[in-house]
């Protein structure tokens, strides 16, 4: 038996796909910065992680 999706379900899936793409596009870089901040001991200041112009580690 073929599996059919209703139009409403298709729209929901497409909307979810669009939202997840936007979330990925704008959330991936902050995730990397957060991981770099939270997984490093001692924790560096955020400005040093954010800016390539900030001084490197001493």
């Amino acid at each position: 038996m073929a599996f059919h999706l209703s139009e409403e379900s298709k729209e929901r899936i497409l909307k979810f796909y669009d939202i997840s793409q936007v979330a990925f596009r704008f959330g991936f870089v902050p995730l990397i910065i957060f991981l770099g901040w939270s997984q490093t001991y001692p924790r560096p200041s955020l400005i040093r992680l954010l800016s390539p112009l900030a001084m490197t580690r001493s």
């Binding site: 992680l49 390539p52 580690r57």
Partner: peptide
């Protein structure tokens, strides 16, 4: 291109 290595596990580049 300006890059920086603030810690041994993070880097950034502009």
């Amino acid at each position: 291109n300006v890059s920086s290595l603030p810690t041994g596990s993070s880097a950034s580049s502009g």
